[in-house]
């Protein structure tokens, strides 16, 4: 009887507590699980980001093979696929974040609104201002909440107090953080909870008023409640922004996205409306992955 090593009663108690915790405080995720595609967007797609035969190399190793896809404006597009499939690489290519890594090269092209991101006329700083990004691990700067939000404006040379105040309020409201932090804007951002930090990072990204918001597994380090809040936020934000989200969580992709792209071994296997893809995938690999047979 190995259970004699522990106190049975206590374990049961804890189990119950965890269960009730989820049920009581995260009803949204449960509700969504029942109704998989509650907010499917049926408006016509206008492609904003277009990848054309995009190849990407880390040194000699090819990470992406001939990727061509159209990401629609003001919708949420999810990239799914097993680890190492290249979904993060293509996401980070959109704002040229991969340029920081030494020895990378690419072939083909990605355009945003018809302009190539590799256009020599275009400054990478300008591109990143148009394409905001939220990372897997929340990365607030060691500054106050206020300074975190206005960082993008500050580096762009905006120093008028009235304008900064306005942007802070607007961005924090859009990222559903305003009510929680409005009384302590001058306090360190590092004192926030994990979920708050991630929402702060979203606020920081949208303070620049970008066209596109890239999210690299934004909820993977968060608990279910914080995840639910971020998902709710993504739904709100897609009215103003084109969102591309990388996720490992199939349910999340199904819940938040309008379109889904499935990557496998650096190739785009299938790209379709989320509902269609999850209900009737055309490719065998997709079906295997979303039903959990591999990955």
């Amino acid at each position: 009887m190995p259970s004699q090593l522990y106190n049975d009663e206590e374990i049961t108690m804890t189990d119950t507590q965890i269960g009730s915790h989820i049920n009581a405080e995260a009803p949204r995720s449960k509700a969504q699980a029942h109704d998989a595609f509650p907010k499917a967007d049926t408006s016509p797609d206008i492609a904003l980001i277009q990848a054309r035969n995009f190849n990407f190399f880390y040194g000699k190793q090819q990470a992406l093979f001939d990727i061509s896809l159209d990401i629609p404006e003001r919708k949420v597009t999810a990239f799914i696929g097993p680890s190492g499939c290249g979904k993060s690489t293509i996401l980070r290519s959109i704002n040229r974040m991969n340029d920081l890594i030494e020895g990378v090269s690419h072939g083909g092209d990605i355009t945003i609104g018809g302009t190539s991101i590799y256009d020599p006329q275009l400054e990478v700083i300008g591109l990143r201002r148009r394409v905001g990004m939220v990372f897997q691990k929340s990365n607030p700067f060691p500054k106050s909440i206020y300074e975190n939000v206005v960082y993008g404006l500050r580096v762009a040379g905006e120093n008028r107090k009235a304008r900064l105040d306005e942007v802070v309020e607007q961005s924090l409201k859009s990222s559903a953080l305003w009510d929680e932090v409005k009384d302590r804007l001058q306090e360190s951002a590092l004192a926030l909870s994990g979920g708050q930090m991630q929402r702060l990072c979203i606020a920081r990204a949208i303070a620049n008023e970008p066209d596109v918001l890239l999210m690299d597994e934004p909820c993977s380090a968060l608990d279910p409640i914080a995840t639910a809040k971020i998902e709710e936020l993504i739904y709100q934000l897609k009215r103003d922004f084109t969102i591309v989200i990388v996720t490992h969580n199939m349910q999340q992709a199904a819940r938040v996205s309008d379109k889904t792209a499935f990557f496998y071994l650096g190739k785009l296997i299938e790209f379709n409306n989320t509902k269609a893809m999850f209900i009737s995938p055309t490719k065998k690999q997709t079906e295997d992955y979303i039903t959990g047979r591999f990955g």
């Binding site: 920081l100 700083i125 300008g126 990143r128 905001g132 990004m133 990372f135 691990k137 960082y151 762009a156």
Partner: peptide, 11 residues
């Protein structure tokens, strides 16, 4: 992550 966060803000 902090560096990338700053660069992603257009710094």
């Amino acid at each position: 992550g902090v560096r990338e966060g700053s660069l992603a803000c257009g710094a």
